[in-house]
Design a protein around this nucleic acid. Structure first.
Length: 422
DNA sequence: TCTGGGGTCCTAGGACCC
DNA sequence: TCTGGGGTCCTAGGACCC
């Protein structure tokens, strides 16, 4: 005999969505401090571009006699041998500053000449990209072993979905965050800050609450008390322009933003951005943690040591242009992509940016083809003005193994000469 | 004291097709 | 003679992020 089925009683409550945002503390600088622990506690700034690498290396190399020099003796280089911000001349910006340097007001993206005014005695080191990438892989692998649903947001940042991870709900995620923080420290010797919240938006803000080496947990019921007092600029997606416009309307905090009528926001900021502002001000964000994504474009660009002129500096500019095309082609080939939209980017001395691009019939990853098409794009911009930056970009990417099944790349025609270009 | 390099996404107009 | 929409692709610029 069959019993009538009663309404099902769930054995488990569904897990609450718990999303973590993690970022490494002063990452580029911390990577250098692993090698040069004698700099701990001192103001250190990372930046200044690749051109300095050899110089800095030679200077540090001279600190120790040959027989004492080695990977294990770098911590014996006297602090006096390290280059100082005061000695820097050039157009670089700071990539990272250690916390002692931040005390002086030095921050990332700040021009180094300005930083030198604030803290001339700070030590200035170039970025070691290979080492940064190595440590980046190391900390991400460490996380992925514990919590596999992880989204890459750059060398020093990730989102992690705690929701279905065993133990991910305990103390709102704090227990798992502690485990990850400890594991990363064991694997790399570096600290990070973590925010755990109901979604990516809040998690990102929460990871900034306690820095360095902090953990912040925001529960759904705490969103308004913790988020509404913050300035709008703290929202990931509100930049300087939007913030200025908000301020112009007397909106300074996220709470003040939330108090505005949705329709008014849409009328003032546009259909898409206005509606989005309304949603985020109420702490709403349903974006998933995305574990895989395909690149949309690849590019290389360079700022010259001095502004160049298309006619007067034709040879130099041509060589740089060719090199950029070769670099993009090499990047495409190495990563296994081809593209069919090829473009150039120029920044004039007044900082105005112009771009030109063209879409060709076939996908390519060939340097000569890029050089030819980008060269045609260059002919469409004003080359009478002095140029500060030149860039080459390839978009509309497809994986190379998919392209080759669609059809072969046509044979390349001869490239234009420098004289034809400039 | 001017402000790097690598990206993503959005908007908006025009061409072109149905 | 005047007047359609929708959809997609292309191009240029701009905001924003790490």
């Amino acid at each position: 005999m069959l019993a009538r089925v009663s309404s099902p009683t769930p054995l488990h409550r569904p897990n609450q969505r718990r999303i973590a945002h993690l970022d490494m503390d002063a990452f580029f600088a911390s990577v250098e401090l692993l090698r040069y622990p004698q700099l701990k506690g001192l103001p250190v700034v990372i930046g200044g571009g690749r051109r300095r690498e050899a110089d800095v290396f030679a200077r540090l190399r001279s600190a120790l006699p040959d027989r004492e020099w080695g990977p294990d003796t770098l911590d014996r280089i006297p602090v006096d041998f390290f280059p100082r911000l005061a000695d820097y001349t050039g157009r670089g910006v700071a990539t990272t500053a250690t916390y002692p340097a931040r005390q002086f007001g030095v921050g990332s993206a700040m021009g180094l000449m300005k930083a030198a005014k604030l803290c001339p005695q700070a030590i200035l080191l170039p970025v070691d990209f290979d080492e940064v990438r190595r440590i980046s892989r190391l900390f991400k692998n460490t996380i992925a072993e514990i919590a596999p649903v992880m989204e890459d947001r750059g060398v020093d940042e990730v989102y992690i979905d705690f929701t279905e991870v065993p133990g991910g709900q305990r103390e709102g995620g704090r227990v798992l965050a502690r485990l990850i923080q400890k594991s990363i420290f064991q694997a790399t010797g570096l600290t990070c800050s973590i925010g755990v919240a109901p979604n990516k938006l809040i998690a990102k803000m929460a990871s900034e609450f306690k820095k360095p080496n902090g953990i912040s947990v925001v529960m759904p019921e705490d969103v308004q008390s913790l988020i509404w007092p913050l300035p709008c600029r703290k929202i990931n997606g509100v930049g300087p322009k939007a913030d200025a416009k908000l301020q112009g309307h007397g909106i300074h905090t996220i709470g003040e933003l939330a108090a505005r009528d949705r329709g008014w926001l849409i009328d003032t900021f546009g259909k898409s951005y206005g509606a989005w502002l309304h949603e985020v001000s109420w702490g709403r964000d349903e974006r998933p943690v995305v574990t895989e994504s395909e690149p949309v474009s690849m590019s290389r660009e360079t700022t010259f040591e001095r502004d160049l002129h298309a006619v007067r500096d034709r040879v130099e500019l041509g060589a740089i242009f060719t090199r950029l095309c070769e670099q993009v082609a090499a990047d495409l080939q190495r990563k296994g992509y081809m593209g069919k939209t090829i473009g150039v980017k120029l920044r004039y001395e007044n900082f105005q940016i112009v771009t030109r691009d063209v879409t060709i019939e076939h996908f390519t990853d060939d340097a000569a083809t890029l050089r030819r098409q980008a060269g045609l794009c260059l002919k469409r911009v004003d080359l009478s003005r002095r140029i500060r930056l030149l860039g080459v970009r390839v978009g509309s990417l497809r994986r190379a193994d998919e392209v080759t099944t669609l059809g072969a790349v046509p044979p390349s025609t001869p490239a234009l000469t420098m004289d034809q270009l400039f």
